[in-house]
């Protein structure tokens, strides 16, 4: 079976620093594939290249049977690939509802409608409410996004990524800054998503990773040092030494 996302030889240098040292990665349809590694290993840089924000120096990226390495961010979104950010990225001055209305209107493909009011558009409002309801944010619909709690903002960002209709989500540390209860809630949300779509999950919270992941790839200094099922990764001596050792104790 060919993978939904197939990465070969992905290479990125920042000056003398090799942030991606020829990465190979296969993400299969319907799985949650975790990408873990210590700080500075190159996880965010890898996500940036897959999403189309950072231009790789070399390598190929195939998504859904098509080479996408040359496409700009918005074209990749149209194909069904989008990301979330390590530092929460939402539209702070818009309400939660407006944040999602914007996603749906872009998805409908009419960003160039100049005269009809968008805010009064009942169809857009309904779709946006459905999206918010999906993540339990409906009660917060009319709150400006900047006034939401941090955990709610992370959920809002996830709701936005989902509303694009993505087949593959690239999630960059969705639990970052969340308390233990919120982390558990987020883990539960991701587990529910598993049936509908495919996720490449960058995450430091090892409880979440091992609760969710079907496969784990370990990145250290821009190199893949191991890739396989969670149990095998947990048992891998090289991984324990390089990374898990410190945290797993």
């Amino acid at each position: 079976m060919t993978a939904l996302l197939q990465v070969r030889g992905l290479t990125k240098r920042f000056g003398g620093l090799l942030a991606s040292g020829g990465l190979d990665l296969d993400v299969h349809q319907g799985e949650i594939h975790a990408l873990i590694g210590p700080n500075g290993a190159g996880k965010t840089t890898a996500i940036g290249q897959l999403a189309g924000e950072i231009r790789p120096d070399a390598g190929t990226i195939r998504f859904d049977g098509q080479e996408i390495g040359h496409l700009p961010v918005h074209r990749r979104v149209a194909l069904g690939l989008t990301r979330s950010f390590q530092v929460t990225s939402i539209l702070p001055a818009f309400t939660a509802l407006e944040n999602l209305m914007l996603v749906h209107l872009v998805r409908e493909g009419h960003p160039f409608r100049f005269l009809r009011s968008a805010r009064q558009d009942l169809g857009l409002q309904r779709q946006a409410r459905d999206s918010l309801a999906g993540l339990g944010l409906l009660a917060r619909a009319d709150i400006p996004a900047e006034d939401l709690a941090h955990g709610e903002q992370r959920q809002l960002e996830l709701a936005m990524a989902l509303a694009t209709g993505a087949k593959l989500l690239l999630l960059d540390e969705p639990m970052a800054g969340l308390g233990p209860t919120e982390s558990l809630a987020m883990t539960e949300i991701l587990r529910r998503l598993k049936r509908q779509l495919t996720i490449l999950l960058v995450e430091h919270d090892m409880d979440a990773v091992f609760a969710l992941a079907d496969r784990v790839t370990v990145l250290v200094s821009g190199q893949v040092i191991a890739s396989g099922p969670p149990d095998a990764i947990r048992a891998d001596p090289a991984v324990r030494e390089a990374y898990l050792g410190a945290e797993a104790g």
């Binding site: 999403a51 914007l102 160039f112 968008a118 558009d121």
Partner: peptide, 22 residues
């Protein structure tokens, strides 16, 4: 207040987020 206007205001607030929604 149109769709175009909303997209424009979104770009002012956060260009990366707007690109990531397409």
């Amino acid at each position: 207040q149109s769709r175009f206007g909303m997209v424009l205001q979104g770009l002012r607030q956060n260009e990366r987020r707007m690109a990531a929604i397409g």
